[in-house]
Design a protein around this nucleic acid. Structure first.
Lengths: 214, 214
DNA sequence: TCTTTTACATACCAAACGTACGGTATATAC
DNA sequence: GTATATACCGTACGTTTGGTATGTAAAAGA
């Protein structure tokens, strides 16, 4: 009884996932402007009707994709993964340099199909008011949850503000690197920039940790 | 004799400028995905035929807009403007804080219709190969020219590399702030982040200057 | 068993897209 | 005066867009 129900729900879930995967692929390869429903369908064996069944509008498809991308990153932080999380590595484990961790984070999270697709959506959200209205609350929540990973308990208000700002600087820089890639396509040079940034930021991360220790 | 020819060429030049201005406005308000030829024409009193005469394809219109935007920023740097150029202010004049200059730069150059339109095009260039082929060389040239403003003569090779990397970090951060705005719409908070970044970067700019003085 | 719900498929729609093209007016060159 | 180039106009074309309407097969619930 249950297995047949599960089988059907599972089928629907698989279709949803396939559509979202194809959407991510399109956003990464073609950009937001050229990502159409037809193009998404080309990359997967799903009918137009099936897509409209799961995502009644194109906007719903984008929202579904955002939900997937946001929870993906959160999941990534929740289950340890000390190698791709720069701050955690420095403040918790202590082995390896911050620069290494930053480069790994860039390669594993930001400069990936999912990371680039996310950037495309964020960029589109800037001018798409309907999208912004639905996505902005999600982003605020997500931002809040992410920050919790970096805020050791017992910090005073000022220290929390300080760490939060430092985190935002880090995120702004690393997202901006997606733009910068257009000027410097050489991955080695990109890595060099990231390493220098890590070097400059390092003392300010250490400071945040020291404050929480006292 | 000359006046009549000039008058005609002037008229054409005015039409071109009006079309580019309208394109910038559309990119800023609607984003790259929703910027169509029809939409550009809506914002200006020019016929469809006139647009096709000056810009034979949509791609040509974008290229024309990029040319305008790039030369605009270069012009901005060439003619003094010490208030909006953070590095110049610190290394040349010395009055006012770096943070103030950075905030001014953000407000006057990046967070403007022209700055946002530029970001939209750069983002689109990532996935549009035809556009990338025509724009990338322009960007490399432009980048090179911009760097010249920040490189005092007599620097050794290592110092040049150091300053160049620092410049790229700065640019990556400030462009990334366009993304970050989607998370924090409050301008005062944006300013706070920029000021903290300036504080962190300040010693590293001073270092570059000291090296060139010795 | 009969009804409802879920998952998917096919066919179609009006609107908008970028582009092509024939035509007019005027200014310069010879 | 004639040829040529520039600036501009307006319509029409074929394609693609996001979205809808209708139908079918099967599982779930009564």
């Amino acid at each position: 009884m249950v297995s047949k129900l599960d089988k059907k729900k599972q089928r629907g879930e698989n279709t949803r996932k396939a559509l979202i995967k194809s959407t991510i692929d399109c956003l990464d390869r073609l950009g937001y402007a050229e990502t159409s429903i037809n193009r998404v369908l080309e990359g997967v064996d799903v009918s137009r009707g099936a897509l409209m069944h799961h995502f009644p509008s194109k906007e719903d498809l984008v929202i579904g994709t955002v939900d997937f991308l946001l929870s993906r990153i959160l999941r990534h932080y929740q289950q340890e993964s000390p190698n791709s999380f720069p701050f955690a590595q420095v403040t918790h484990s202590g082995n390896g340099t911050l620069a290494d961790a930053l480069v790994t984070y860039w390669k594993n999270i930001i400069d990936t199909p999912e990371g680039r697709a996310f950037s495309e959506i964020i960029m589109a959200t800037r001018t798409d008011k309907a999208l912004s209205l639905r996505i902005s609350p999600k982003l605020e929540d997500w931002n809040e949850q992410l920050n919790q990973f970096f805020l050791p308990p017992g910090l005073d208000e000022e220290a929390v503000e300080d760490v939060t700002l430092t985190l935002l600087i880090w995120r702004s820089f690393i997202r901006g690197m997606i733009f910068q890639q257009e000027f410097h396509s050489d991955p080695d040079y990109i890595e060099k920039i990231i390493r220098k940034f890590a070097m400059i930021m390092e003392p300010h991360l250490k400071l945040a940790q020291t404050q929480s220790d006292t």
